[in-house]
Design a protein around this nucleic acid. Sequence first.
RNA 1: GCGCCUCUAGCUCAAUUUGGCAGAGCAACGGACUCUUAAUCCGCAGGUUCUGGGUUCGAGUCCCAGGGGGCGUACCA
Length: 484
Amino acid sequence: MSSDAQPEPPPGPETGGDVPYRFERSHSAGEVVEAFAGLEAGVETDTVVSVAGRLMLRRHQGRLAFGTLQDATGRIQLFATAAVTPSFEQFTALSIGDWVGVRGAVMATRRGELSVRVDEWVVLAHARRPFPDKWHGLTDPDTRYRQRYVDLWVSDEARAAFARRSEIVASLRRRLSERGFAEVETPMLHPIPGGAAARPFVTHHEALSADVYLRIAPELYLKRLVVGGMERVYEIGRVFRNEGISTRHNPEFTMLELYWAYADHADIMELTETLVAGVAAEVCGSTTVAYDGREVDLSTPWRRATMEEVIAEHAGIEATLDSGLAELRACCDRLQIPVEAGWGPGKLLLEIYEKAAEPQLWGPVFVTDYPAEVSPLSRRHRSRPGYAERFEGIVAGRELCNAFTELVDPDEQRSRFEAQAELRAAGDDEAMLLDEDYLRALEYGLPPTGGLGIGVDRLVMLLTDTQAIRDAVLFPTLRPDPSA
RNA sequence: GCGCCUCUAGCUCAAUUUGGCAGAGCAACGGACUCUUAAUCCGCAGGUUCUGGGUUCGAGUCCCAGGGGGCGUACCA
């Protein structure tokens, strides 16, 4: 920082000087704006503040210069004059994008713009590359994602969305903590990928001479912890699935999974709707949010409807597991849904739901009573043979969560795994693998447990009104840059 | 994977019905200006038109191949 008593030329492009190791900031831009809101035009206060950020706009007028300084909290105008600002010429030579620290009196210009007078200033970092057009910003999505560090400065929407993402995740953690859930971290490198039907990424551990898999879900480890006596656990973390990329899919995404001993699917529904509505109220200020030009009312309770009910409503078809294989196949034919030979009635019913009913749902709605056949980790429905106590939450037309009363019986879990193995043998490379250690854990006894998985990125999309997962993930997966 | 669209200066965009000297604004650079708000004004520069072939007297433009990206679709949350 230059000093009034013994002014030193601030390091700048001309001097090639080094930049300071730290800067003592007294106020963020937002704090100045808040503290001095309504300051009358032309008033200079005695309050001296230190602010820091990037110079985003400049307006020079001879021996007077204005700048717009932006930091994480917002923008504040800088007011410099040749009379009071040291090294005024160098100050006016700053580039857009340069980081500067400024110390001076808070004032309002004749036009009433709240400003910090530049009594002292120092360059904190030079922007050697030019910033994008100050009015148009970046429009090329590729550049926005690859150079997010630039996008965040020039796109207010991006900055706001990611700030809100942090609030959402913090809110989830706080709410779960309040309910007695302990946050844990389980392995990301799995010897046997499990907990979901998905193709994994494979990697190799040299010292162990063993292939390992990036996890596709933390589910089986979290339930091991319930066996271990952790009655309420959750994990928020990255999972990896070796599948296509789309507006709703990133190969690595963030999942919230929780397990709650002594609870069942009904408890989980209540928890889910309360959690989501609470987070929405906290970060959006309302349980009614706008998404994609439509309204979503997240206030509790959410509608519960069985899979058959929504199929009847939206596809106009009466289809259940009791309809029989032939009838379900005929339904698929009528709806022009391609079917494969090995599919059982459960898979056929699920296909009918996913192709003919789900796309028309807006929600929020819990679609309940999934076929047990397609739910290898969930417990059989207590009163409906062939069904599982599993549900998915559909919000704003998208799957937000997947949950169930957990399957606790080791023998039944073994036979479910074996059924998956048959599917795998028949060519389904997303079918689950048998995990002997998980079965052993179940043999020690898993109490009645409810489990939930929420796609955090999808929740962020919902609450930030973004239509592409890339706008909810800071660094979405892209092809390696051929020019890099 | 497949289909459609797209790629021009650091950024945002132009460039006449298949074709005729590659342009503007912002940023940068030089200058003027003591209350601006995307400041304004004058001046000066700035290009492998994504890459490689081809057609043509002549290609940013037309054709072929490749690359990046977007959207849709498939798999999936």
